[in-house]
Design a protein around this nucleic acid. Structure first.
Length: 279
DNA sequence: GGGCTCCTGGAT
DNA sequence: ATCCAGGAGCCC
């Protein structure tokens, strides 16, 4: 799915068009995607904001939070009409601030995605929002290092755990670990202090650069306008098995970590030998 | 930790 | 035909 940079791109572009607009009609083509709330309550509501939390897209009205999780293949598109595409599950029709019709389509080929309509008053205190740890772009270095020190889990699995730190997915975990020269299965607590600081710094750097590039279009991610992101052109390791490392020219390898395809440079990201007690 | 599940589809 | 896929919950 869209990860933090893709979701941030989607939210920014939706916000610029939808903020100040009003919702008129809602077509819920596949009711199963609505996980909580009543979609009809959105009729005649004014959109006050569109923001991101972790990988969630949150559309705010006067009284409700509309929360989308796009999972692997979800897309939010601003189209000219309500004609649903092959995998369209929801269309929200409204008028933007200038009185021009908008049609917000929710498409999702694999149908893992969902949405919730929750009251603004206490929606954030329940799932899915309450299940998220601090956002990867908001966490302080101090809190991040405390998190790393709190467990011996493999660093890649920890970065992917949304309840500990929200927003990083499979692409950016691999890219961040590469630039930090860290092997993905290193227990987080065993990283050197230098590596922990490097990880924090590269997390911000990689995510912000990816946002500047409109995210990564490796499969079917597109912005609400249907355009592709370009950060995939800058991937150092993700889905580059068999290709040369951009730093040392060693061959990139793929292995499974926590059930996820994991790409890394076996030279730049060699495991740090542990100090073993000898008997 | 690993494995399976929800789905559809692209690549080889 | 088989493997892989921007996620994540559930089971052991």
């Amino acid at each position: 799915m869209p990860e933090l940079p893709e979701v941030e791109t989607i939210c920014r572009r939706l916000a610029s068009r939808l903020r100040g607009g009003v919702i008129l009609d809602i077509d819920l083509l596949r009711p199963g995607i609505l996980r909580a709330g009543d979609i009809k309550t959105l009729s005649r509501k004014v959109i006050t904001a569109v923001r991101r939390l972790g990988k969630l897209v949150i559309i705010e009205t006067g009284g409700e939070l509309v929360i989308f999780h796009l999972k692997m293949t979800g897309n939010l598109l601003l189209l000219e009409d309500k004609q649903p595409g092959r995998h369209c599950h929801l269309v929200i029709h409204g008028l933007d601030r200038d009185g021009i019709d908008f049609f917000l389509h929710f498409h999702d080929m694999r149908r893992f995605g969902y949405l919730c309509v929750l009251p603004s008053s206490d929606g954030a205190s329940g799932p899915p929002i309450c299940l998220l740890g601090p956002d990867a772009l908001c966490i302080s270095q101090r809190d991040f290092i405390s998190l790393l020190d709190s467990t011996r889990r493999r660093i890649k699995s920890l970065l992917l755990d949304q309840s500990k730190i929200a927003g990083i997915g499979n692409i950016y975990a691999d890219e961040i670990l590469f630039w930090s020269r860290i092997n993905p299965i290193t227990p987080s607590r065993e990283l050197s202090i230098r590596q922990k600081r490097s990880l924090y710094s590269n997390m911000g750097k990689v995510l912000r650069e990816a946002i500047d590039q409109g995210g990564s279009s490796v499969s079917n991610y597109v912005t609400p306008a249907g355009t592709k992101g370009s950060f995939q052109k800058k991937h150092a390791v993700y889905r580059r098995r068999g290709q040369p490392c951009p730093v040392c020219l060693e061959t990139i390898v793929r292995k499974s970590v926590g059930g996820r395809g994991t790409y890394f440079c076996p030279a730049c990201q060699a495991p740090v030998p542990r100090c073993k007690k000898r008997k």
